[in-house]
Design a protein around this nucleic acid. Structure first.
Lengths: 273, 273
DNA sequence: GCGATCATTATCGTATTTTGACAATTCTGC
DNA sequence: GCAGAATTGTCAAAATACGATAATGATCGC
């Protein structure tokens, strides 16, 4: 662990449970002297990533983080493209349902926006930043199913146990099969995988180059009968298409080839599996 | 500029205007070799603060920032305490008004939450992270007026020109006078200082130790007649008191002394000016 | 107001670490 | 599978980060 890593590791110390740290507390955790810990903290404060609080030796996460998060919100093409459609969609579905916009980061899926049907009592947009498990829940699976083969192979080799446990197959071939089924459906449905008693529906979102960028999901409290599922699923798929179109328009896709292919199964554009 | 500073400076390169950087672009800006730049980027990616994008040499701000921002949202006592009252207040005021919650960070004022009266067309909570000028606008002045004398003295010595330009006095004595007036009013009103044609009303928020933590403001589109200003001002002051009470309850104030003083001018509890 | 106490910064010689050029490797698009 | 780019590994030189202590500065209580 190099010293730059230690410096950055400091930020990870701050959690909702322990949002305040003193330099004396942090130094032993980092295995550095008090002098060095002070130097690190000073650099982080100078960058705005930490903020001395109250005036008595305690530090909290700083304003730069909020600013950087704003930069992401302003520049993230998926978020910008999805917002209007999400507002439309949330009006179409019944109450007791939430919309989730998730984004793929390397090997992580993260919720980057949440929109509640009944926005009175619920806290709005409050679960932005929640990391989701890669192999559980419709939101993650919808993304997973459309990753390029190389990426999938790497993921499978890294986490075969987790994949088997999540019911995604006990072998590479089974894994491929399950994902192909999800792709064929154009929609992923899960029941109670993340929250007991909650039904999740999710569709993938694509870049102009047909790379999967994230997913749009509906979390519905309670079970869902078939007609409802069909109706809401159709709405969700339509919403996904619309967002894809907006993304293409925004990023100037120069749509290389596949203008002909039916967009019901966009995966085959990114290579056979 | 130490190497830790350079490492952290990389994050500042990413803006809404240029959200994507390659290592080759960044290296000359930092005055380091390509090898070192790659090492820095690797550390930042490992920490999740940057994210390789697309797959062709470009990097963007990473998921850790969104996660850290969530930590702040979950643990910031001002934000947690203010949310319910803001939801109540937004229902009391007419449309064409927005609520702003701002927080003091060292020498900066930053908007940490925004709530629109008409939350249909407006984008919700979208200006979180916007840094505000320290000496302009009601939200900043309301905070400024209640800073401890030492802090004020330091600020005045550092930015006398900005202060004069903002109409806050051409000398230290004038500066003190202006701020005392704001304190006496218990409320700061500004007209068109930040946005032309917008009236701002703002009250300060305090810690249990009566240190100023931030401010709660109403941004009202257009001019405001006297009766309206009085009515809304009273509501705002009441809201501020309520939030202060919640903060005291949350942080366990152990309210040291001043239980007797009228709370209309809380500043004298933190020292004379 | 003034002094005690804690948080923070400056000092400075030593040695650990980072640095940079280049080679090796991995990854991506075709 | 192959070309080309993106990224990582290697290694000697030396820059600079490190640690212990001393000095400063802020904050609290009296």
């Amino acid at each position: 662990m190099t010293s730059a890593d230690k410096l950055l590791f400091i930020l990870r110390l701050f959690s909702a449970e322990q949002p305040l740290w003193t330099v004396e507390q942090a130094a032993p955790v980092l295995n550095v002297s008090l002098s060095t810990a002070y130097r690190y903290f000073r650099s982080l404060v100078k960058a705005g990533l930490l903020d001395p609080v109250g005036g008595s030796g305690r530090y909290a996460l700083g304003p730069a983080i909020i600013e950087l998060d704003r930069n992401i919100r302003l520049s993230d093409p998926v978020l910008r493209a999805a917002l209007p459609t999400m507002q439309w969609l949330v009006a179409q579905i019944d109450r007791a349902g939430s919309l989730l916009l998730c984004r793929l980061y390397q090997d992580k899926v993260m919720c980057i926006h949440q929109q509640h049907a009944t926005d009175g009592p619920h806290r709005i947009s409050y679960e932005r930043g929640l990391p989701l498990p890669m192999f559980r829940g419709a939101a993650s699976k919808a993304i997973l199913a459309h990753l390029p083969p190389r990426h999938l192979r790497r993921l499978y080799d890294a986490h075969p146990a987790q994949i088997a446990e999540a019911g995604l197959g006990a072998s590479w071939d089974e894994f491929k099969d399950r994902l192909r089924t999800i792709r064929r459906n154009g929609l992923c449905i899960s029941r109670g995988e993340l929250t007991p008693g909650t039904t999740g529906l999710s569709v993938p979102l694509f870049s102009p180059q047909r790379q999967v960028l994230g997913s749009l999901s509906i979390a519905h409290r309670g079970a869902m009968d078939e007609p409802s599922a069909a109706r809401i699923g159709a709405l969700l798929i339509a919403a996904g298409r619309e967002i894809d179109a907006v993304i293409v328009a925004a990023l100037g896709g120069t749509a290389t080839s596949q203008g002909s292919a039916s967009s019901s199964d966009p995966a085959h554009a990114s290579g056979r599996i």
